[in-house]
């Protein structure tokens, strides 16, 4: 069995340890005896989506996103067909914003891929901090770090999770990320996948199921002590804060 991961424009979209997400997927496949290949695409490379099982679209600065956005127009249709056909996509931060219709920045509008019916508007002040979510996809919380000036509005789409601590999509709705077919978009880096092995395995299993069928997609469990403890550290650290805050409110009332 072999899974091919397409890393889109790592030359430009490589903020915040995106490498770690690739490393995480590759290792978790290899540890299970599944072959993994990573294809890193440059901005001028032709992309054949039919050979890809997972696509990673990372984050970049606004300037870099603008360069990428011009290229994305040319691959929009094939990217969209890949998604509609159940292709797995993990889009983070800037990549998440590019999934939508547009990203309205102070320096103009960046046209998105229009793969998911969402849009982003830049507002004053960046949302920067550790964050954790409860997703209905997994029992284990999703932890990460957010750092974004854009506020993403996901309309009627399903969010990735409910924000327990942190800001999330727009700092108001109480939700973070988006899930559409086999696409996950999120502001969480840290990087995202190593501390969230449940989410990594979810992506892997969706990709395997699509190419090799449901039977093959049942993944062997891995000894995830280090992953779970790193995840739990963030949850514990901020659960206390959430509890203390609730306690204060209770006392006030």
């Amino acid at each position: 069995m072999k899974i091919t991961i397409g890393h889109l424009f790592p030359d430009l979209l490589n903020l915040y340890g995106d490498r770690g997400n690739i490393q995480c997927m590759v290792q978790r496949l290899r540890w299970r005896g599944i072959e993994a290949e990573v294809k890193a695409f440059g901005i001028d490379d032709r992309i054949d989506f039919s050979v890809l099982d997972i696509v990673l679209l990372g984050g970049g600065s606004d300037r870099e996103q603008m360069i990428v956005c011009n290229r994305l127009k040319e691959i929009k249709d094939s990217f969209k067909a890949y998604v509609e056909n159940g292709g797995v996509v993990i889009a983070i931060c800037g990549g998440y914003q590019l999934l939508g219709k547009y990203y309205e920045t102070d320096n103009g509008r960046i046209e998105g891929l229009d793969i998911v019916d969402i849009y982003t508007v830049q507002e004053k002040g960046r949302l920067i901090n550790n964050i954790f979510l409860q997703s209905d996809l997994f029992e284990m919380p999703i932890v990460g770090f957010e750092n974004h000036g854009g506020r993403t509005h996901i309309n009627n789409n399903k969010p990735l999770g409910k924000v327990i601590y942190g800001k999330g999509n727009d700092g108001k709705s109480g939700y973070e990320g988006v899930v559409y077919k086999n696409v996950i978009g999120t502001y969480l880096h840290g990087p995202l996948l190593p501390k969230n092995p449940q989410l990594c395995d979810y992506l892997l299993s969706r990709a395997i199921e699509r190419r090799y069928g449901a039977e093959a997609s049942k993944l062997t469990p891995l000894p995830d002590k280090e992953e779970n403890e790193a995840n739990k550290y963030i949850v514990d650290r901020y659960s206390d804060k959430v509890e203390n805050f609730k306690e204060k409110i209770r006392k006030l009332i």
Binding site: G17, R19, G20, Q23, I128, N129, F145, N147, H189, G190
Partner: peptide, 9 residues
């Protein structure tokens, strides 16, 4: 820096 993701770079 509160963000430790640089460790992966």
């Amino acid at each position: 820096g509160n963000d430790v993701s640089w460790l992966w770079d």
